[in-house]
Amino acid sequence: MNATDRTPADLLRSALAADPARPLVTFYDDATGERVELSVATFANWVAKTANLLQGELAAEPGDRLALLLPAHWQSAVWLLAAASTGVLVDVDGDAAKADLVVAGPDRLEDARACRGERIALALRPLGGRFPQPPEGFLDYAVEVPSQGDRFAPLAPVDPEEPALIVAGAELSGSELVDRARLDAPGLGLTGPGDRLLSTLGYDTWEGLSAGLYAPLASGGSLILCRHTDQAAENVLQDRIDSERVTATAR
């Protein structure tokens, strides 16, 4: 990663320039048996499409607050980077009533209805599938995002000193987030390209977000993000660690 990177979006651009084909995020859901592997290029494409949805279709502006009511999931990671690309402030597990827009999974739709702005629902089905029946009052992300552009350019440059993330009550600017992720990386066993971190942590704390996205991105490493590991036998997780050539874990 470049020393001049000051926002999460900068980190992703540097990763794309360095090696677009390498795996960036590999996601497992042990409740469904899902496995998804996203290269840097594929992940960046999802981010670009989602950022275009935010800026274009949803008319989100820098400084708008997005309540993110999603678990640790590859699509949650996409939304975090898309918001960073547009200057939208992400409030993880935030109060939807205080947000300008809300993004929610299937188990948080009732909480999300408190938002008076745009509401986006994610089915979190394997392969990014849509809802069988779109939830009333929500846009279905899986329906809206495919038609968005594959390249994104913000209407205004994102200020790295503006608030970018709120998690567990702590607010971080883009530059603070990048600095903390870089500092966390060595302690998580991430020292450079080739390192592969497996995380079973949730996204409701900084520790979970750092291990489950930002530190691997800041270090040039790769992430294996696992959900519902309580439904997998211990030997399944160990086999995964071996097969994915994991070099470090956060559990």
Score class of each variant (00 low, 15 high):
Leu155Ile: 08
Glu161Gln: 14
Ala181His: 00
Gly189Lys: 12
Ser175Leu: 12
Ala170Val: 13
Gly169Tyr: 08
Pro160Glu: 00
Pro163Asn: 10
Val167Arg: 02
Pro154Gln: 11
Gly149Thr: 12
Glu144Lys: 14
Leu183Val: 11
Pro157Met: 02
Pro163Gln: 09
Asp159Asn: 12
Leu172Val: 01
Ser173Gln: 06
Ala142Val: 05
Leu155Trp: 11
Pro160Asp: 00
Phe152Asn: 05
Leu155Arg: 15
Ala168Phe: 04
Asp159Tyr: 02
Pro163Gly: 09
Val167Ala: 04
Leu183Ile: 10
Leu188Arg: 13
Ala168Asn: 13
Phe152Met: 06
Gly169Cys: 09
Val143Gly: 04
Gln148Val: 10
Glu162Asn: 13
Ser175Gln: 15
Glu176Phe: 03
Tyr141Asn: 05
Glu162Ser: 15
Pro186Cys: 02
Ala164Lys: 08
Arg151Gln: 12
Asp150Gly: 15
Val143Ile: 14
Glu171Ser: 14
Gly169Ser: 08
Asp159Leu: 06
Ile166Asp: 00
Leu177Glu: 04
Val178Thr: 13
Gln148Ala: 13
Arg182Asn: 07
Gln148His: 09
Arg151Tyr: 11
Pro186Asn: 05
Leu155Ser: 15
Asp184Arg: 08
Leu188His: 12
Glu176Pro: 02
Leu177Met: 06
Ser147Pro: 00
Asp179Met: 10
Ala170Ile: 11
Glu176Gln: 15
Asp184Val: 00
Leu188Gly: 08
Glu162Met: 14
Leu165Gly: 02
Gly149Met: 10
Phe152Asp: 02
Ala185Leu: 09
Ala185Arg: 13
Glu171Ile: 10
Ala142Lys: 09
Val158Thr: 08
Leu188Ser: 10
